[in-house]
Design a protein around this nucleic acid. Structure first.
Lengths: 233, 233
DNA sequence: CGTAATTAATTAAACATTTGATTGAACCAG
DNA sequence: CTGGTTCAATCAAATGTTTAATTAATTACG
């Protein structure tokens, strides 16, 4: 630990730029960025314990020692990925709430943005679900706050809808759990559907994300609406 | 594998009975049953890779060699657990469909039974979600068929409802994904809620399973109902 | 300017654990 | 005895981390 290690408090700082080959994704270049991208993929596919440092490094085109150099440990890499992912998502969802409008429209927009983010960063839903599954073991404090923030967005939308009379009086937390649960499960299950598709009689291939988004939007807006349901008996 | 190993094709067979201490759960006694129970718990908590044979054996009050003796390998234990769990669930849900009745009532019953099973066997939702997450890597063929069967139950309920006129014309597969996604996520996230509850301003403690079930039932029946929604604009 | 000193980035090898599986002896009911 | 069951000890492979050496860029300064 005698030589200066950059892992200490840094998060987004980028080392020197290299004129190397073009990167596929967007933001950070260099080995550090390669590790973030490769790590997100492998962690999403196999979970924290199933992802070996060796495999991550290989996919990033680096050696596993680089993980410890740039992030201090495998867990350090994991936390850096979680934090940046959750922060970006929470930011976009906050924007939905901030934009205002009628509650049903905000709810539709919430679903849209959430799904858009999941489609843009396919590693986010699996990582989120895995983290929830393990009780937030590896979840850094700051990332947990983002999750709480998202919960607050849904809560305030629902509360506004109830006050406006467009929604019946429902529990905001339960509503949040249903919407986010549906969406996370759908996107996290994508690899499963692809692999199990031939086994299932799946006409017209697996369902598209757009179709599911529309389905969820209708389901929620109709399901929360004030109008009385089809009462039987 | 020279000595006779019972692991080959067995699934539910029980070794000799012992007069040991009372077991907490129901079915199989003996070391084999202890391993099934302990394995389900640890696999649910940590996933396949995160669960060590040592930890499972310890919780079962046995040694890890017993896993290999009774199930040939750690993966063998895992598959045995998955198969028995999924088979039981699929059976109860098939019964819901077989009982008949109006589509909305069947859908409510489906949610009820699904949630009841999850509450009775808290290890099932996490294991199911983890398996879906990893694309069904460790999923034995027979267990996959059960999952497909459950999907068929929802599909036929929805198709009946559409034909009867109680449901609007929705995609059965998308409907299945929403219901099952909501339920699995809710139950799989239980440890997370418990751990994050103090961090969140959670008035009255975490939501009860019964409350969530009622919420999902209303949401689905209203959301799928034929009646026109609260059209805005 | 040019060159030596310094720092950052990277790699290959070594290390210390951990872990799933195997083995052989002991145990025990019938 | 005998055959199924259990355990303690052992093995070999895998894995996260550390270390030492190498290379490249940046800075200091004569």
């Amino acid at each position: 630990m005698s030589r200066g290690s950059p892992a200490a408090g840094r998060v987004a700082a980028v080392g020197r730029r290299r004129p190397g080959p073009r990167r596929g994704a967007s933001q950070p270049a260099g080995t550090r960025g390669d590790l973030l991208r490769a790590g997100a993929e492998v962690f999403a596919e196999r979970g924290f314990d199933g992802a070996t440092a060796e495999r991550i490094a290989e996919r990033a085109g680096a050696t596993k020692a680089m993980i410890n150099y740039h992030f201090r440990s495998k867990q350090g890499l994991y936390e850096a990925i979680l934090l940046s992912t959750f922060t970006e998502l929470a930011g976009r969802l906050d924007a939905v709430r901030a934009k205002g409008g009628a509650a049903p429209d905000q709810l539709r927009a919430f679903v849209d943005v959430f799904a858009g983010e999941a489609a843009l960063h396919p590693t986010f839903p699996p990582m989120m679900v895995r983290e929830v599954l393990s009780g937030g073991t590896h979840l850094p404090e700051q990332a947990l706050l983002r999750v709480v923030g998202v919960m607050g967005v849904v809560r305030s939308i629902v509360e506004q809808g109830v006050k406006e009379g467009s929604f019946r009086p429902v529990d905001p937390l339960l509503t949040h759990l249903s919407v986010v649960g549906m969406l996370l499960f759908f996107f996290a299950a994508e690899p499963f559907r692809r692999k199990a598709a031939p086994r299932i009689g799946l006409k017209g291939g697996p369902p598209s994300a757009a179709a599911f988004v529309a389905h969820v939007q209708e389901l929620m807006v109709r399901g929360l609406a004030t109008a009385a349901p089809h009462r039987r008996r």
